[in-house]
Simulated scan of single mutants.
Amino acid sequence: MKTTLSCLFLLMLSAPAFAAGEGGGIRIENARLPEMPPAAKTAAIYLDIVNSGAADRLLSAQAEATANQTELHATQFEGDIMRMRKIEAVDLAAGATTALKPGGLHIMLIELKQPLRASQSVPLALRFEKAGTVQITVPVLKREGAAAAASHAGHGQ
Rank of each mutant, 00 (worst) to 15 (best):
residue 113 K to N: 02
residue 34 P to C: 09
residue 11 L to S: 03
residue 156 G to E: 14
residue 94 A to L: 06
residue 30 N to A: 09
residue 73 H to C: 09
residue 7 C to A: 08
residue 74 A to W: 04
residue 135 Q to N: 15
residue 136 I to P: 01
residue 10 L to S: 07
residue 63 A to Q: 04
residue 80 D to W: 00
residue 80 D to T: 13
residue 117 R to G: 10
residue 100 L to F: 08
residue 50 V to S: 01
residue 19 A to E: 02
residue 31 A to W: 00
residue 79 G to E: 12
residue 127 R to S: 13
residue 77 F to R: 15
residue 24 G to C: 07
residue 90 V to S: 11
residue 51 N to P: 02
residue 106 H to F: 04
residue 74 A to R: 15
residue 105 L to S: 04
residue 146 A to N: 12
residue 154 G to R: 14
residue 48 D to I: 06
residue 28 I to G: 07
residue 133 T to C: 08
residue 110 I to F: 07
residue 104 G to W: 01
residue 62 Q to M: 11
residue 37 P to V: 15
residue 134 V to K: 06
residue 57 R to N: 10
residue 41 K to C: 13
residue 144 E to N: 14
residue 66 T to Y: 01
residue 78 E to T: 14
residue 128 F to G: 05
residue 124 L to V: 04
residue 16 P to F: 15
residue 82 M to F: 00
residue 152 H to R: 13
residue 19 A to L: 06
residue 113 K to V: 03
residue 74 A to Y: 03
residue 94 A to P: 03
residue 153 A to G: 15
residue 14 S to M: 12
residue 7 C to M: 11
residue 147 A to K: 10
residue 107 I to S: 00
residue 108 M to A: 13
residue 84 M to L: 11
residue 17 A to L: 10
residue 127 R to H: 08
residue 128 F to N: 08
residue 148 A to C: 08
residue 87 I to T: 09
residue 111 E to V: 04
residue 62 Q to K: 14
residue 37 P to G: 04
residue 151 S to K: 05
residue 6 S to R: 14
residue 76 Q to I: 14
residue 92 L to K: 01
residue 39 A to R: 14
residue 115 P to F: 08
residue 108 M to Y: 03
residue 111 E to S: 11
residue 133 T to E: 13
residue 95 G to Y: 00
residue 134 V to Q: 07
residue 30 N to P: 06
residue 9 F to E: 04
residue 141 L to P: 05
residue 31 A to I: 08
residue 61 A to E: 00
residue 24 G to V: 01
residue 74 A to P: 09
residue 106 H to W: 03
residue 41 K to G: 15
residue 129 E to A: 12
residue 35 E to M: 11
residue 149 A to P: 04
residue 154 G to L: 10
residue 74 A to T: 14
residue 136 I to S: 00
residue 150 A to K: 07
residue 78 E to P: 10
residue 81 I to N: 15
residue 106 H to N: 12
residue 111 E to M: 07
residue 38 P to Q: 12
residue 99 A to I: 07
residue 20 A to T: 03
residue 132 G to L: 02
residue 136 I to D: 05
residue 91 D to E: 13
residue 15 A to D: 08
residue 94 A to Y: 03
